[in-house]
Nucleic acid binder design. Structure first.
Lengths: 152, 152
DNA sequence: TATTTAGTTCTACATTTGCAGAACTAAATG
DNA sequence: CATTTAGTTCTGCAAATGTAGAACTAAATA
């Protein structure tokens, strides 16, 4: 098992993307590896060797990725090793959660607004409008996700 | 100019929220201050004193927040100080950009898919479905943003 | 032109983060 | 029951990050 140059480049590219959405470099690359590799189920040691990373790093990253719900492992009869793979179907949920998390500011904003003096009506009006934007988007997004889930 | 206990709590709360979306603690708190404070335009020194932070920290954070498009400053005739305030109207654009950035993975995914062998048809099918999800969402979101901008 | 003002840049430092390698552990195997 | 296997936990370190304070600068003021 080894990687083509093209695959290595793709892993780095996807790795950087993953870093920017809150993973460590190694986490990002492990996830990328599991998406790019032609072997879709890789063992601890294969991951470690392919990415040339330390044992503890591999262990910790794999555990984090599991906690975050991005990967899982299966086992095979008569084989003690764990075979890790991405939980692709979870991605939609991931995206949904993160979108909604972004719009969660709405609640905080309402709290801020409730505490503002009425001596800055213009500012308050803008904040109110922003709030309406959040509410609107939350509604729209739920609808979109619903629409996707229930498509034929 | 000083803050109520309630305001201080709100600033910390919003501050933590901001930290989690990629700002330093101080950046997050400055932005929070400018949203929570009843005085909507604050000077360098007011910000520094209210948040009890260093001069260089204040300077760097204010510059970063301007680069990120989150704040701006105005000046007053016969007054050399800068008066900083949030660019609230930019928030919608911020949200839009970040949403779209999340879905930008779609392009990367297509590249990955193009490079996968056809020996893993099931996996590839799932990836394809994920891609369709991204495309669908991108379309939906653009529509939603458009709808918001053109509402009466 | 000396001083003050409003802010920037430089230097230093403490904290946090990410990773490696060694030591360890629990289960399976010889 | 000694050894191997498959991983986890511990220890330490190098680099990055976030902040403070001092030194500096450019413009305005006395």
């Amino acid at each position: 098992m080894n990687l083509t140059e093209k695959q290595k480049v793709l892993i780095e590219k996807l790795g950087v993307f993953n870093e920017r959405s809150g993973m460590t470099p190694v986490e990002g690359r492990i996830l990328a590896l599991l998406i790019v590799s032609d072997v879709v189920e890789l063992t601890f040691d294969e991951i470690k060797e392919l990415l040339e990373i330390g044992k503890s790093t591999t262990s910790n990253a794999l555990n984090m990725l599991q906690i975050k719900g991005r990967i899982e492992y299966i086992t095979k009869l008569g084989d003690r090793k764990r075979y890790f793979r991405v939980k692709i179907l979870n991605w939609e949920k991931q995206i949904e959660q993160r979108m909604m998390a972004m719009l969660a500011m709405s609640d905080l904003m309402k709290e801020v607004l409730a505490n503002r003096s009425d001596k800055t009506p213009e500012f308050n009006k803008e904040l109110t409008k922003l709030n309406q934007f959040f509410d609107f988007m939350r509604e729209e997004f739920s609808e979109s996700f619903f629409k996707w889930k229930n498509r034929k």
